[in-house]
């Protein structure tokens, strides 16, 4: 029920953002549409937290945006340094990392955050395993190092989703 309500609120917000129509007809049509869409998604079995209905989670979600931006900038600088360095210190490879996140939404957002960060790219999500392509794979314990670098995202995502 909360899941459907969350979808309903989301669709309604999108409707007003797209149409910017706040007269009676606009509101009525928007409510009907949002209800129909929320109903149509009822049998899609995906664990999901009704994000939009919980203010504290919404707060962490908003707080995550600048943090992610910061990491992306840092990674950008790092990749730029590697590319411009005469020795070209790259050591590409795919590593396997276990994530402690449980919900699918959190895992997907984690994978997408990794992809958004330059130098790393998530290849696949399989259960709680993430397959990540890195531009520089450390020589000792590559999987463990990756897992440690995931933790900085996981803290936020856990607060948002779990």
């Amino acid at each position: 029920m909360t899941k459907a309500l969350s979808a309903f609120v989301f669709c309604l917000l999108v409707w007003f953002a797209v149409t910017w129509s706040f007269d009676l007809a606009g509101i009525a049509v928007g409510v009907v549409l949002a209800a129909v869409i929320a109903y149509s998604l009822r049998d899609v079995e995906l664990e999901e937290v009704p994000l939009l209905l919980m203010p504290h989670r919404l707060f962490w979600a908003l707080a995550y945006i600048p943090v992610l931006f910061l990491y992306v900038v840092r990674a950008n600088v790092d990749v730029a340094w590697r590319v411009l360095h005469p020795a070209l210190p790259i050591r590409p490879g795919i590593v396997k990392a276990r994530t402690s996140l449980k919900t699918p939404g959190a895992r997907v957002l984690l994978a997408n955050s990794i992809t958004l960060t330059p130098g790393t790219l998530s290849v696949d999500v399989d259960g709680d395993m993430l397959y990540v392509h890195r531009i520089y794979v450390p020589e000792d314990d590559p999987d463990g190092a990756t897992e440690r670098s995931l933790e900085r995202f996981e803290g936020f995502l856990r607060r948002i989703f779990e």
Binding site: F10, I37, E48
Partner: peptide, 26 residues
């Protein structure tokens, strides 16, 4: 398809649908 596609579709489906309906209604 894989988990990523399914979750993202779950999020985007409503958005695309609402956008399409808005384009038609307006």
């Amino acid at each position: 398809m894989s988990l990523i596609v399914r979750v993202v579709t779950r999020w985007l489906f409503g958005l695309i649908l609402v956008f399409g309906l808005a384009v038609a209604l307006f």
